[in-house]
C-alpha cells in the first residue's frame, strides 16, 4: 500500500535557470497518482517551465540549467543513465496548440508505439490498437473513415484528442497538459475536459491552465504558483472556497493575472 501512495511526480528543491534568469525557486511538489492536478498562476510564473522540466523537453534550450530532484513514479528523472525515449514513454505531453504530426491519423496514433516496437507488428494488431485508443479518447466514430488522411486536416478538437490518443499506446502513467484547451472553442473545450476527466484514475494528469473555471471544474487538486515559487497546493474545492494565502485569493478573484 505504501507504494501506491507514492506520488506520480515528486520534486524536491527544484531550481531552474534560463541563462541568468531563475524561473523556478525550490519547488517541492507531490503530484498525486490517478488524479487531475491543475497548475495555475499568472503568465511567467513558471507553470509551463515546471511542466516542461518533468519530461525534460525543456533541455532542448541549451542555456537551461536545473538543480534539485524530479522523480516520476519513484524513479529519478535526472539520473545520468535515463534515456529520454523511456522517460517520454512514461510521461506523455499535450501541447497548447494541437500539434498532430503531418502524417496520417493512423500513423500519428502509432508513432510512439512504432518507436518502441521497431520490428513491427501485424497489421491486425496495429488496427486493433488504433481502434482501442481512438475509442478511449472518444474519437473513433468521428475519424474511423479518415484513418489514412492527413491528421492536420482534422478539426482542432479532433486534433487535440488525437494528440492525447497517440500518447496512450505506449502506456504512460503521467500526462502533462500545457493549456490543452486554450486554442479550442467552448464546445470543444468541454469535450476535451470531459475526456480528461474520463482518463483520470488510469493516468495521473498535470494540467496547466489560465482558465480559473476550468481548474475549478476539472481538477482534483490545484497548485498556485507565483514568480517561480509554489504558493499554495490544496484540494481544488478548498482552494477556491478558502484559499489560505492572500496572493491566491487575489489571483482567483481576478485582481491580477
Amino acid at each position: 500500500m505504501a507504494e501506491a501512495r507514492e506520488p506520480a511526480i515528486r520534486t524536491r528543491g527544484l531550481n531552474l535557470w534560463y541563462g541568468d534568469f531563475q524561473a523556478l525557486f525550490d519547488v517541492d511538489l507531490d503530484i498525486a497518482r490517478g488524479r487531475v492536478t491543475s497548475l495555475i498562476g499568472p503568465s511567467g510564473c513558471g507553470k509551463s517551465t515546471f511542466l516542461r522540466s518533468v519530461n525534460r523537453i525543456i533541455e532542448r534550450l541549451d542555456y537551461v540549467r536545473t538543480s534539485g530532484s524530479i522523480e516520476v513514479m519513484g524513479q529519478d528523472v535526472l539520473a545520468s543513465d535515463v534515456a529520454l525515449t523511456q522517460l517520454r514513454r512514461e510521461v506523455g505531453m499535450v501541447f497548447q496548440r494541437p500539434n498532430p504530426l503531418p502524417i496520417s491519423v493512423r500513423r500519428n496514433v502509432l508513432f510512439a508505439h512504432r518507436l518502441h516496437n521497431p520490428h513491427g507488428q501485424s497489421r491486425a494488431e496495429e488496427d486493433e490498437l488504433v481502434e482501442r485508443v481512438l475509442r478511449e479518447v472518444l474519437l473513433w466514430d468521428q475519424v474511423k473513415d479518415r484513418l489514412d488522411s492527413l491528421a492536420t486536416g482534422l478539426s482542432l478538437e479532433e486534433q487535440q484528442k488525437l494528440c492525447i490518443a497517440r500518447l496512450l499506446p505506449v502506456k504512460p502513467s503521467v500526462l502533462l497538459m500545457d493549456e490543452p484547451c486554450s486554442a479550442l472553442d467552448p464546445e470543444a473545450t468541454s469535450a476535451v475536459e470531459e475526456l480528461i476527466w474520463e482518463l483520470r484514475g488510469d493516468y495521473s494528469i498535470l494540467i496547466v491552465t489560465h482558465n480559473m473555471a476550468q481548474a475549478r471544474r476539472a481538477s482534483d487538486e490545484c497548485i498556485f504558483m507565483l514568480l517561480g515559487k509554489v504558493v499554495e497546493h490544496a484540494p481544488t474545492g478548498d482552494m477556491f472556497v478558502t484559499p489560505t494565502h492572500s496572493e491566491t485569493a487575489d489571483y482567483i478573484e481576478g485582481r491580477y493575472g
Partner: peptide, 13 residues
C-alpha cells in the same frame, strides 16, 4: 518547430 517538439515529446530522437 511544433512538429519537432511533438515528435521529441513522443520519445523520438
Amino acid at each position: 518547430q511544433a512538429f519537432r517538439e511533438a515528435s521529441w515529446s513522443l520519445g523520438a530522437t
